[in-house]
Amino acid sequence: MNADKRKQAIKKKGYTLKQIADALGKSLSTVSNVVSGRYHSEAIANALAKIVDQPVEKFFADCKSYTTPSNSVVVRGLAREQKVDELRQLFSEAS
């Protein structure tokens, strides 16, 4: 599905991108950029796919970032802070 079809599917459900942005606490431009495929956001993409009752992989079939499994590792909490500290130290050494 391309960006125009995504917009049409959302409109068919009776919603505007502005309403969705307000409900998600995001800017209209951010939501619009996700719909158009210019910006990647799993959370927004999942919300949009939920609105139209489709899996995100199908709703964003033309966007590789939603259809290709990610090899990235999500690090949270203390482990994330430790990684950030490591990077800060690395960057300060490079200066």
Score class of each variant (00 low, 15 high):
68 T>K: 15
53 D>A: 08
74 V>F: 05
35 V>T: 08
14 G>F: 10
8 Q>F: 12
72 S>E: 10
86 E>G: 00
91 F>A: 12
37 G>S: 07
9 A>L: 15
35 V>D: 04
16 T>M: 03
76 R>T: 11
33 N>A: 11
18 K>A: 09
78 L>A: 05
86 E>A: 09
25 G>A: 04
53 D>N: 15
74 V>S: 06
49 A>T: 01
9 A>S: 10
22 D>R: 04
26 K>I: 00
64 K>Q: 14
32 S>T: 14
11 K>M: 05
23 A>R: 12
2 N>K: 13
11 K>P: 03
6 R>E: 03
56 V>W: 06
81 E>K: 13
50 K>G: 05
56 V>D: 04
50 K>A: 05
8 Q>V: 09
22 D>L: 12
83 K>G: 01
79 A>H: 09
70 S>N: 08
72 S>G: 07
69 P>A: 11
52 V>W: 12
40 H>Y: 14
19 Q>H: 08
41 S>C: 02
74 V>M: 02
61 A>V: 12
18 K>M: 09
21 A>L: 02
11 K>G: 06
43 A>R: 12
8 Q>C: 00
30 T>Y: 13
81 E>P: 00
7 K>S: 10
85 D>E: 14
92 S>M: 01
9 A>M: 14
21 A>H: 02
2 N>D: 15
76 R>H: 06
94 A>E: 10
65 S>I: 12
30 T>A: 06
70 S>M: 04
92 S>E: 00
64 K>W: 13
66 Y>M: 07
11 K>C: 03
3 A>Y: 14
15 Y>M: 09
89 Q>T: 14
62 D>L: 07
68 T>N: 09
83 K>T: 08
63 C>H: 00
